[in-house]
Simulated assay, not measured.
Amino acid sequence: MIELTKYICHRIPERSFFIKGHQFPVCARCTGFYISIFSYAIYAMLFSIHYEVYSFLIGFILILPAFVDGFTQYLGIRESNNILRLLTGLLGGIGLMIIAKTIKILFLLPYII
């Protein structure tokens, strides 16, 4: 299983969490993304959420911190830490799900039904 995660995450050890000496299968940011994507999916099944066009903007704003954190680190402007990576990943995952659900409900479903 760990071998398969290399296709969904870079798994750089210094950017990953460890429990009892064992590295998480994904990095800290991806951990945040997957936790919030899974949590939002469950939340969206249990509670009615009304999506509007502005929801797309809210989703984009939530993804922005992960993009800025990752991109500034990539450019060598600054070095992030795992807690910040996790937090930006959590926000980014929620934003990604909001965008995906908004596209599905507002743009795809009207043409399918």
Rank of each mutant, 00 (worst) to 15 (best):
P65S: 04
V26P: 07
E3L: 09
G59R: 01
V53G: 06
L46S: 13
M97G: 07
L96P: 13
V68E: 07
Y40M: 10
L84D: 04
T102K: 04
I8L: 06
E79K: 15
M1W: 05
K20S: 13
R29I: 03
G92Y: 05
I42L: 06
M45K: 10
G70I: 00
F67D: 02
S36V: 08
I83R: 11
P65R: 01
F18L: 08
D69C: 14
S48V: 11
F18Q: 12
F17K: 02
L91Q: 00
F38D: 05
T5S: 10
L109Q: 14
Y111T: 08
T88L: 14
G76F: 02
H50L: 02
I103E: 05
Q23C: 00
Q23N: 04
V26F: 02
I77T: 12
A66E: 01
A41L: 15
A66N: 08
Q73I: 06
R29M: 04
D69P: 15
L64M: 09
Y74S: 06
S80M: 10
F56K: 12
P25H: 08
I103L: 04
P13D: 15
H22W: 11
G21E: 07
L108Y: 11
L46M: 12
F17M: 01
L84V: 04
L91N: 05
I103V: 04
K20Q: 15
F18E: 12
F107S: 01
I12C: 10
C27K: 00
E14Y: 08
A41Q: 10
L87Y: 12
V53W: 15
I105W: 03
G89I: 00
H22D: 11
L86D: 04
L75R: 15
A66L: 10
V26W: 02
M97C: 06
R29D: 03
K6F: 03
L87T: 05
G70A: 01
F24I: 01
Y51V: 03
M45N: 03
L75M: 10
Q23M: 04
M1A: 10
Q23P: 00
P65V: 02
I58F: 03
M1Q: 07
